[in-house]
Design a protein around this nucleic acid. Structure first.
Lengths: 209, 209, 209, 209
DNA sequence: CATGAATGAGGTTTCATTCAT
DNA sequence: TATGAATGAAACCTCATTCAT
């Protein structure tokens, strides 16, 4: 797969007939399946189409190229996570700092873990530095929500600055990724939520004092 | 690049002559250069050989296949980092927890940052799940050293368990990676050392109290 | 585009309703537009249909395949030219040789130049040796007309034989094509008419003396 | 085959080993063979390689893409023709106008006819307007030579201007092409030389009087 | 030991054409 | 009749790897 200019990564056409809608769904689901079962570099457009039960041509009716397909899958995953974080932030308004952070971390980890395998598979090509835009933008959504909710914490005299929030996000996301990728023992994965909450909370306290 | 059995990833022959040593050095350096200038999926064995000033055939005299070459490059980088961390641990024996963590974090970040571009380039394929062994093993070295030094901290009543150390490592490594990959603003990169030290220290304190 | 047997090149059905007539017109016009804007190898049936404002399916209701569409477009153009030449011949009856040739050449060049861009675009596939029949046949019409009118030239003792007429036609058509394709300077294109008349007339005189 | 930017049309590497030299020869010869036997749009790189007795990969070691291969074949043909014309001009210095033109026309037609089939096949893609540069440049060579020799004609009071020479060239080249493409009767092809000489000479005389 | 020409499986993508709706 | 989703053969091109020189 060759790097390509920023153009042409958008899905090609929006399905208008019902049949078509089912097709795009099948294709992106198939992409995930292949990613899981074969890995990124065994994922070929032909194989995806085959698994989806359509012909390659059909795949290319909806995605202008292989990258755009993968990008769509990644975007969908990231969107899920960001949405979960946003919802958690919304619900945690006015609670204590510890409760807030716990809520956010739980939401994040849950969202990642729900399809940990998919997340793991997606990391493989999210590393590709050619698409920082998408990842950045989704990270931004989470940070915005986080910043907003932290302003409502009663036990914070001065709300943390954007910098600290970015650092905490980095810790949350980066640590989770590392733990997932390292194939950490189940015990660790299980206690990731609480440990991560401890970590983030400790950092925030240390940082705002 | 095709997945391959775990055999055949070792460098093919140990260069005994000086000339041969120079050759392997040139090849792995060339691989890094290509990784930086062209990216992983434009890195071809022919290109690497060309940049190294040798023929493809020669490359294959020292590395049985492409993966083994990349693996060697990655191993070398990880080894540098682990060695730096170990040295820092050695030097920090008997100091306060804060000083220890600061020393380790600084050593780690410095080692990563010294060739941040290389680290970034290597992330591209370190994600490939087919080589978790190497990463795990090198991580283990750091954790061992960390565990040992923490036992000498005078201000720690009970030394942290392996679990906490693993978590802290994950935070250190994962957060650094995230910050590097996110293309974070220079200000953030610059203060990464101190923030990361704060974070790790706060976590350790929270965890051992 | 695959070569295909000589069958199936005729337009599929003669449009009887007004709406249908408009459709075929739109399609062939669209084909020309695409030819001009995208070139022959970017001309796809889907694109033509889209530009014509109909669906591919509709296109295939009127043309059995892509070749037949292109053929229709070419035939139409050639017919225009042949008709213009015939008309000029008709009008030039009884005039001097010089006047006749001038009239014919002018008519020919004018017809080509009127849509020089289209002519140029059509050359792209007229070269395809699989359709010589059409070109031959239309050339024949012109030559017939030319032969007839030359018989009425008062200043020709013996009318030129078919051979000379064919040669002159070849010169007229071939030279024009060359000049158009060479992207000759405007000055040359502008004086093409007179120079071509000179050339043809000189040849005829040299040949009949 | 997609249109492509002006880059990457140069042959990829010059063969250094003897074996390689034979290979490139075999490949371009094979391209001609396929062009003759299958036509332009049945000419695939795989087929050419197969006919040449090498693998596709080998073909792509010497030509960066399909176009460059065809271009090389075309360039070689055009070069032959231009060289023949230049040689004829050189030999005709100081002769009469009629003799000069006859020599040039004969040389040109002979060069084209020697491999009339190849010339015909090449016309198919020479029409492709994306490479006017090559054709123009070779035409220029012929015209330069023609201009030079015409200055030495003793029976020309004033040598013809560049314009007239260009027109005559257009007539020579265009007419020959038309005759070849039209699948003219053998009789015509046979007398093409003399008729074309007559035509060019008559034009030149008419033009310089 | 080094060279680099050769290999060829396999990847991505296009597009003329069909046919169920 | 019109639509446009689906098809799938087939094209171009890459690149890890081998092996004769």
């Amino acid at each position: 797969m060759r790097a390509r200019s920023r153009r042409g990564l958008e899905p090609r056409k929006t399905p208008v007939q019902a049949r078509a809608e089912a097709t795009v769904g099948a294709i992106s689901e198939a992409a995930i399946q292949i990613l899981l079962s074969h890995g990124l570099d065994r994922l070929t457009t032909t194989r995806v189409a085959e698994r989806a039960g359509v012909s390659v041509g059909t795949l290319y009716q909806y995605y202008p190229n292989k990258q755009s397909l993968l990008l769509a899958v990644l975007a969908s995953h990231l969107d899920n996570v960001a949405t979960a974080v946003e919802a958690a932030c919304e619900q945690a308004r006015g609670q204590s700092l510890a409760a807030m952070i716990s809520a956010v971390v739980n939401a994040f980890v849950d969202a990642k873990m729900e399809r940990a395998d998919v997340a793991l598979a997606l990391y493989q090509f999210a590393a590709d530095l050619r698409w920082p835009a998408l990842v950045k933008q989704v990270g931004q959504r989470s940070r915005k929500a986080l910043e907003a909710v932290l302003q409502t914490a009663p036990d914070l005299t001065s709300p943390p600055d954007a910098f600290a929030i970015e650092m905490m996000s980095a810790a949350m996301v980066g640590t989770t990724r590392y733990v997932l990728e390292a194939g950490a023992p189940p015990a660790m994965v299980r206690s990731l939520r609480s440990q991560l909450a401890t970590l983030c909370h400790a950092y925030m306290k240390a940082n705002t004092n």
